[in-house]
C-alpha cells in the first residue's frame, strides 16, 4: 500500500508537469488552431537562463520569478514580431514556423551552453516528508503544489478577470470580439506570454529531475501533447486532468507492468494519442460546440 501511494504521488508530480505543458499547448491551440511545437524548447531555453542566473550567484527565489517574467515578455515579443506576420496564414504555415522555432531554440541553447548535461538546483529540500508511516519525496510534493497553485491561479484569471474573459472571447470568437473593441492581436500575444510562463515554470520544476540539456523538454512535450489530446485539445481543464491521469497511469504501469516498464512509456503516450484520436477525437473533456442557427 505504501509503495502504491508513493507511486501515485510520484506520478502526480510528473503528471502536473505534463498538465502545465499541456495547458500551454491548449492556450495556443485555442486561439490559433495549431500546436506550438516550440513550446518545450522555449521552456528549455528559459530554464537555461535560470541556470545561468544561479551560476552568477543569484538566489533561486529571485532567479525563478525573473526567468518566468522573461519567458512571458519574450514570448509576447516573439508573437508580435515573428508569429504575427503569419497569424492569418494557413495552419500548416504556422506549424512550420513553430517547428522552425523549435530548431532555432534548440540550436541556440546548444551553441550558448553546450550539449553537456548539467545538474540543476532544486528549490525543494531533499529530506522526505512523512505522512504517518509513508514517506514522500519533498520534490514530488513541491512540484505538485507549485504546479497546481499556478494552474489554479490561471483558472481564476480566466474566469474572474476582464482581460481573462477577453482572452477567451478573442480566442474563440475573434471577429465578434473585434466589434466589441477587443484588440485581438494583443490578446493572442498575451496568450503566448502566459503559455510560455507556464512552460517556463514546468521547465524549472522538472530540470532537477531530468537534468539540464538542450533536449530535456522533447519527451515531455510528447507527453504533454498526449495529455492535451486525452483531455480534449480545446479544454484547459481537460489538459490538466489529462496530464495528471497520464502521469499517474504511466508511473503505475512502469512500476507494476514489467512487460512495459519504463522503456515503453513514450510508446504508450503515442498509443494514447492514436487511440483517442481514433475513438474520441474531442477528448475526455471536449465539448461539442453549442450552436443554434
Amino acid at each position: 500500500m505504501h509503495d502504491l501511494a508513493q507511486q501515485i504521488v510520484s506520478g502526480l508530480a510528473t503528471g502536473s508537469i505534463f498538465a502545465s505543458m499541456a495547458l500551454a499547448l491548449v492556450l495556443i491551440h485555442r486561439s490559433m488552431g495549431v500546436i506550438n511545437f516550440a513550446q518545450g524548447e522555449m521552456a528549455m531555453f528559459t530554464t537555461y537562463l535560470a541556470w545561468q542566473f544561479s551560476q552568477q550567484g543569484m538566489p533561486l527565489w529571485l532567479a525563478f520569478p525573473l526567468t518566468i517574467a522573461i519567458a512571458f515578455a519574450g514570448a509576447v515579443a516573439l508573437e508580435r514580431i515573428v508569429v504575427r506576420p503569419v497569424e492569418r496564414a494557413a495552419p500548416l504555415t504556422i506549424v512550420i514556423l513553430t517547428l522552425g522555432l523549435l530548431i532555432a531554440f534548440n540550436g541556440l541553447a546548444g551553441w550558448i551552453w553546450g550539449y553537456v548535461i548539467k545538474a540543476f538546483p532544486s528549490p525543494f529540500p531533499t529530506t522526505p516528508l512523512h505522512f504517518g508511516s509513508v514517506a514522500f519525496s519533498s520534490q514530488d510534493l513541491g512540484i505538485i503544489a507549485v504546479s497546481l497553485a499556478s494552474l489554479g491561479a490561471i483558472s481564476v484569471f480566466f474566469k474572474k478577470t476582464k482581460v481573462g474573459l477577453a482572452m477567451r472571447a478573442a480566442a474563440l470568437y475573434p471577429e465578434s470580439s473585434r466589434t466589441l473593441g477587443v484588440r485581438v492581436g494583443w490578446m493572442l500575444a498575451l496568450g503566448w506570454g502566459m503559455a510560455a510562463a507556464v512552460g517556463a515554470l514546468s521547465g524549472l520544476m522538472i530540470a532537477p529531475v531530468v537534468l539540464l540539456d538542450p533536449n530535456m523538454m522533447q519527451g515531455i512535450l510528447v507527453y504533454a501533447f498526449a495529455a492535451a489530446v486525452l483531455g480534449g485539445i480545446e479544454s484547459p481543464l481537460g489538459a490538466v486532468v489529462g496530464g495528471l491521469m497520464l502521469g499517474v497511469g504511466l508511473n503505475l504501469i512502469g512500476a507494476y507492468v514489467p512487460f512495459i516498464g519504463t522503456d515503453l512509456q513514450l510508446t504508450m503516450a503515442f498509443a494514447i494519442i492514436v487511440v483517442i484520436l481514433l475513438f474520441r477525437p474531442a477528448g475526455l473533456f471536449g465539448r461539442r460546440r453549442l450552436l443554434r442557427v
Partner: peptide
C-alpha cells in the same frame, strides 16, 4: 459605434453575463 452583426455574433460558449461583460469591454 456598436455593430450587431448578421447571425448576431453570439459568444455561444460564454455565459449570458459574460456576453454582456464583453459588450462593456471598452
Amino acid at each position: 459605434i456598436a455593430h450587431v452583426p448578421e447571425g448576431r455574433g453570439t459568444l455561444s460558449t460564454l455565459s449570458v453575463w459574460e456576453n454582456l461583460a464583453m459588450g462593456a469591454y471598452t
